[in-house]
């Protein structure tokens, strides 16, 4: 599985790319794999304010719906307009064309709560192990 360098990762399986005070947000390869075929994307509108840990949109796969939680707080300055018509882009290119929103951050300190690629890889590994244990019960 791929965890590109230069990105920061949340426990809710989003990635964040920081350019000055703007954060580009998407979901990780792990998250798209868990969701399966994504068929519907609900995104906030430009100008909307989002707060860390609150849902700012949702993703639906054929089987299930999942909230997307904001990894940082701020104001939405751009959304990926192409996604509503081709949500499968998130499955195909989660770190590239599958980006979801750009947010003008209000608190740069929140970035400290996010994980490095190495820490996120470890986090996924631990989650998988816990899942395996659950299945063994």
């Amino acid at each position: 599985m791929d965890f590109p360098e230069g990105l920061k990762y949340s426990k809710e399986h989003e990635w964040v790319l920081v350019e000055d005070d703007v954060a580009i947000i998407g979901i990780t390869e792990f998250a798209q794999g868990e969701l399966g075929d994504i068929v519907f994307v609900e995104l906030p509108e430009v100008g909307e304010k989002i707060s860390k840990d609150d849902p700012f949109g949702s993703l639906e796969s054929v089987k299930a719906v999942s909230d997307i939680f904001a990894p940082i707080s701020g104001t939405v300055v751009e959304i990926n307009d192409a996604l509503p018509d081709s949500p499968e882009t998130i499955n195909e290119d989660p770190y590239g064309d599958g980006w979801m929103i750009k947010v003008q951050m209000t608190d740069m300190n929140e970035l400290k709560d996010l994980m490095s690629p190495e820490d996120y890889a470890e986090f996924i590994k631990q989650q998988n192990e816990e899942e395996d244990e659950d299945e063994g019960d």
């Binding site: 399966g36 075929d37 068929v39 796969s61 054929v62 089987k63």
Partner: peptide, 9 residues
């Protein structure tokens, strides 16, 4: 399982 290669495929 829920899926092998993906529900749509």
């Amino acid at each position: 399982p829920v899926q092998y290669r993906g529900v749509i495929e």
